[in-house]
Write a protein that binds this DNA or RNA. Structure first.
Length: 317
DNA sequence: AAGACTCACAACCGCATGCGA
DNA sequence: ATCGCATGCGGTTGTGAGTCT
C-alpha cells in the first residue's frame, strides 16, 4: 500500500477535455511502435500535452484495437445484469466477462439503461442497486433467470463461481479478457499485438500484422490496412493540416511531403478520418497544432467521435 | 424557431492497490 | 517494514446531441 501520492501531472501544462483526431493518431502510433510500459512518461515521449492517466484512459476506453464499439447486444446486457447482481459495481470484473467492452462503457450502460430498465421491471432499481452492491446473493442471479439462458451466461455463472472460489485470483480469470488483462498483454509485449485468438471481436483499428475480423455485430470496413509507422514531424504536420480534410489532399501530401506514404496507409488514413469523424462534407475538423494549449479544454472539437458512429448497426436512438 | 430539458457518454478525479527499492 | 511510484478502479462531472414544449 503506497503512501504519499505524487501529483498525477502538472494540470497547468496539461491539455484536458476531448481528444482531437491528431492526438488520437499520435497516441495510437506511439503505442503501436513503443508499447506503453510507462504511462506517465508516454505523453512526453509521444509529444502529447496530456497527462499519462488521460492517455491510458483514452487508449483503454477508446483507441485500444480490440475495443468493441456500438450498441450492446441483448446477450451482453443480460450478462451485465447478471454479473452486476453477483458482483455489484465491480465494473472491471464485469468487463472481464464481456470481451471488447470496457468497464467505463459498461458502467455508462448500466447507469443510463439497465438500471432504469430493471427499475421499471421490478419497481425499485435503486434499492436493488444498493443491495446488489454489497450482497452476492445467489437469489439475485436466480431472479434473473427470466433472461435468456445463453452459453455466455452459463459460462459467466460458472466463471463467477470459480471466481468466488478463488477469490479473484488472476489466474482464474474467465476466458474473456478484461480491459486490464488485455492491456497487460499489450504491456508485456513491446508492441501492440491483438492477434490473440481469444479476442473474437474485430479491432477498432488494425495494427501491423493484424487484420480486421469482420463480425456480424459490428460494422467495420472490409479492407485491411496497417497503421503507418510514420512518426516524423512532417507526418503529424500533414495530419494537422487536414483542414478541411479532402481525400485527394492526402495524395498531394503524399507526393510532396510523405513519399513513403503508400496506398495502404492512405486507405488507413481515410478510414481513420471517417472513424474519427473528419467528415469531408462538413468541412472537417479544426485541427489544432499539438503542443499548443487550447484556450479551453472543451474546445470546438467537442466529442468528435460522437459525430460519427460507424458501429451502430442496430441503433437504439 | 428557439429555449428548456433530458439523455448518453467521454473524460476527469482521487482513492486503492501492486510492486520494486 | 516502509516508502514512493505507477497503474487500476469506481464515482462523478461536463458537454454535445436529441427531444420536448
Amino acid at each position: 500500500m503506497g503512501k504519499g501520492r505524487a501529483p498525477c501531472c502538472d494540470k497547468e501544462k496539461v491539455k484536458r477535455g476531448p481528444w482531437s483526431p491528431s492526438e488520437d493518431l499520435r497516441l495510437i502510433t506511439f503505442i503501436q511502435k513503443h508499447g506503453h510500459q510507462n504511462w506517465r512518461a508516454l505523453p512526453k515521449q509521444a509529444g502529447l500535452l496530456r497527462c499519462g492517466k488521460s492517455c491510458r484512459l483514452r487508449w483503454i476506453n477508446y483507441l485500444r484495437p480490440d475495443v468493441k464499439r456500438g450498441n450492446f447486444t441483448k446477450d451482453e446486457e443480460d450478462t451485465i445484469i447478471r454479473a452486476h447482481a453477483t458482483l455489484g459495481n465491480k465494473w472491471s470484473k464485469i468487463a472481464s466477462y464481456l470481451p471488447g467492452r470496457t468497464d467505463n462503457e459498461i458502467k455508462n450502460v448500466w447507469n443510463t439503461h439497465l438500471k432504469k430498465r430493471l427499475g421499471s421491471m421490478n419497481g425499485n432499481a435503486d434499492k436493488k442497486d444498493e443491495s446488489m452492491a454489497t450482497s452476492s446473493s445467489s437469489s439475485c442471479v436466480t431472479s434473473m433467470s427470466s433472461f435468456n439462458d445463453k452459453k455466455t451466461n452459463e459460462a459467466f455463472e460458472m466463471a463467477v463461481v470459480s471466481d468466488k472460489a478463488n477469490h479473484g485470483s488472476p489466474s482464474e480469470e474467465p476466458e474473456a479478457l478484461s480491459s486490464s488483462s488485455i492491456s497487460s498483454n499489450v504491456t508485456n509485449s513491446n508492441q501492440v499485438n491483438v492477434s490473440n485468438p481469444e479476442i473474437q471481436e474485430g479491432p477498432l483499428f488494425n495494427f501491423t500484422g493484424c487484420y480486421y475480423n469482420t463480425s456480424e455485430e459490428v460494422n467495420k470496413p472490409e479492407t485491411a490496412f496497417d497503421i503507418p509507422l510514420e512518426s516524423d514531424l512532417e507526418f503529424w504536420n500533414m495530419l494537422d493540416s487536414l483542414v478541411p480534410f479532402q481525400p485527394e489532399g492526402i495524395q498531394s501530401h503524399n507526393e510532396t511531403q510523405c513519399p513513403d506514404f503508400g496506398e495502404a496507409e492512405n486507405k488507413w488514413l481515410l478510414y481513420l478520418e471517417q472513424e474519427l469523424g473528419l467528415d469531408p462534407k462538413d468541412g472537417g475538423f479544426e485541427a489544432e497544432p499539438l503542443l499548443v494549449p487550447e484556450t479551453n479544454g472543451m474546445g470546438t472539437l467537442g466529442h468528435y467521435h460522437n459525430t460519427v458512429q460507424p458501429y451502430e448497426p442496430n441503433s437504439k436512438q
